[in-house]
Amino acid sequence: MSATSTYVRTYLTRIVVVVAAVATLAGYYFAYEPISTVSNELNIWSSLITSFTLFVGLISVFARYSRSVMNRDNNWPFHLYCLAMIVVWIIWGNMIGMYSTLYQTLYMSTKITLHITIIGQLIFFSVSGMYRTFRIKSLRTAVFAFFTVLIVFLNMPPLIAPFPALSTAAYWLLDNPQMAAARAMVMCGGIGGVILGIRILLGIEKGALRVTGGD
C-alpha cells in the first residue's frame, strides 16, 4: 500500500470521525444556533450514508453468493435461490409497490412467519434445557431453580388474578433485585462503549480506523 493512501486511510478517516463526533456533542451540550444547524445537517448526512450502506450490503451479498454459485461451493443451490429471490422481490416490489396490500401479505406470510417460527422454537429448547439443567445440586442451582419457578408462577394469570399480592411480589422482584442487576449491566455497557470509542479514536484499538499491516 502506498504511503499516500496509508496516510489518507489513517488520518483522513480519523479527522472526519472526530469532526463529526465533536460537532454532534457540541450540538448536544450547547444551545447555540449555528452549532445546532451543523449538528442537524450532519444527522441528515448520516441518514443518507446509512441508506447507501443498504446498497453496499446488497452488492456484497450478490458478489459473495455469485462466486459461491460459480465455484459450486457448499450450499450453492441455496445461494442461487437467495439471489433469485432477491431479484424477484425487488422487481415485484417495484411493480406492485412495496407498501401495497399484496406485497404486505406476501411479506408477512413468508419471511415474517418463518422468522416468528424460528423465535417460537426457542420455548421448546428452553423447556427441555430447563428440565436437564435446573437440577438442584448446590445452593446456587437451588436459588436459580427456586426463583425461576417463583417468577413463572408469580406471572401466571389465573394465580395473580384472585391474589393480586402475588403480582405485587412479582413486580417487586422485577423492580428491585432484577432492576439492580439490569441497571448494572446497562451502565457497564454504556461505560464500555464510551471507553471503546475513545480507544478507537486514539488509534489504540484495532478497528476500522486502524491501518492494515502494523501493530
Partner: peptide, 16 residues
Amino acid sequence: YTIVSVLIAGFIVLGN
C-alpha cells in the same frame, strides 16, 4: 402462558 407455566414448573420438579 398459563398451561406452559405449569409445565415448566412440572418439568423442573420432575427433573429433580
